[in-house]
Design a binder for these strands. Structure first.
Lengths: 248, 248
DNA sequence: GTGGGGTTTTGACATGAATCAAAAATGGAT
DNA sequence: ATCCATTTTTGATTCATGTCAAAACCCCAC
């Protein structure tokens, strides 16, 4: 096989947020056209991780935040007693590592759920930059508060909702996140295993599986392995609100 | 009765972080002596709320973060369906409102659990200041990430631990927070009702009550109403780790 | 002190989801 | 294509905690 000719000869590490299709989701979202160069100056682009590889590990020195370019990442924390809790799933355009900001070490471990490419933002340079760009700082605050809110929502889901409601909520969340990227919100493949879903939602794997089949029997979704189709989004939304009706 | 003479004639709104006994816990912690004035310039001090009064309400315009000076605050979110979830308890020296940073509206409602005084940090001025003081910015990132982590810990507690483990964890958390303020870590009065504990920990009130009596019968704690004494801290710590032993 | 609303406790019972067990399906590696 | 490990599904049983009901207690206003 002949040596391929590189059509675009670019420095492998030179970022190009300008051209990135995710610039309307990722950090560039908050940066003015003029200042985008400064963001590009600090970002390390193009690192790739295979399924299962660690982007970073809990309790190792916190160096960078990572934006997902393609693929998907899951984060989890391990308590002293060795129990693992999946704390989040991150899709393209989303920023991983915010829970470690201002800390010496990473607060969680991040693993690639599939072949995943990321952009790396070294934290020192990022903090420096947010000090200079008020809009970027504001956006960082926003992203972090969003993560707090998301986590509170999760707590609510875990403490007040049934297995069906939790899974419906997760499916809807994934759906809307696919849609943000102009992908189908009704036809997608789950980046994570049932096990991860179960852990994240505080359920047993068996329960997750059972709910999936139940939803399928009711014609709400169609699932074969990780391939999922939402046949009746309204019904899913109803499930998540079911709880309220009964108690109002 | 004679009109009292004011020994210290101070402007009621002029802050004095310099003299505040909580300056080693609160935001001043991150600010150099020289810059402390700048923090004092933006803080509004001395607002007082009675038990049950709202410091701010979910979905109203986000204006300020609040530091608890004395008393205690609980935050909660109300989902579309009307369910309430207590998302946190805040003790003196702790900062309330971080989950709304960068947002237009408050993400939660904050209520005083008892007579409570707070310092108010108007958000615009705070953001401006964190842009100028890298250490303060860093500290804000730190506080926010701590809140994310705390929320993840809560999620873990809710999804993996029994009622006893959750309550033991809460008691220990409160204990260490009292200790940080140089107060007894074994003898304190709970600022919140059983109901709030139950809601926060995703349990029924009855369950909370039962666990309290169980702990009492085992001689681990002694409780009369909100007055609590931790008789056997080690036992409590053991309870929180119990779970692991069985599964390791 | 007395009364009354809201907490807190206690008891009896029901149930959703965990657990245990095992079969079926999937997907890499060779 | 085949095999093996892992993941997913299905079934039977158990258990912790929720729910319902009611008594006991507490605090605060009058």
């Amino acid at each position: 096989m002949a040596q391929p000719i590189r059509l675009h000869q670019v420095s492998p590490l030179k970022a190009s947020c300008h051209q990135c299709s995710l610039s309307n989701l990722c950090l560039p979202l908050a940066v003015e056209e003029n200042d985008l160069d400064r963001l590009e100056d600090i970002v390390l682009q193009g690192r790739i991780f295979n399924r299962g590889e660690h982007i970073f590990d809990q309790s190792t020195p916190f160096r960078s935040c990572f934006a997902v370019k393609s693929g998907a990442i899951k984060t989890s924390i391990i308590s002293e007693n060795g129990e693992e809790q999946v704390t989040g799933f991150f899709m393209p355009g989303e920023l991983v590592g915010l829970d470690s900001m201002g800390s010496k070490n990473y607060a969680c471990t991040a693993r690639a759920l599939e072949r995943t490419s990321v952009c790396e933002f070294p934290i020192e340079r990022l903090e420096e930059l947010t000090g200079k760009l008020p809009d970027l700082q504001h956006h960082m605050y926003h992203l972090m508060s969003q993560e707090i809110q998301g986590s509170h929502q999760l707590a609510m889901l875990l403490s007040k909702n049934t297995a069906e409601e939790r899974i419906a909520a997760l499916l809807l969340s994934l759906s809307s996140r696919f849609q943000r990227r102009r992908m189908s919100g009704t036809n997608f493949s789950l980046p994570m295993a049932r096990n991860d879903i179960a852990n994240f939602l505080g359920l047993a794997v068996e329960t997750v599986s059972r709910v999936f089949t139940r939803f399928q029997n009711q014609g709400i979704i169609s699932a074969r392995g990780r391939e999922v189709e939402l046949l009746d989004v309204e019904a899913l939304q109803t499930v998540t609100r079911e709880f309220s009706r009964q108690n109002s």
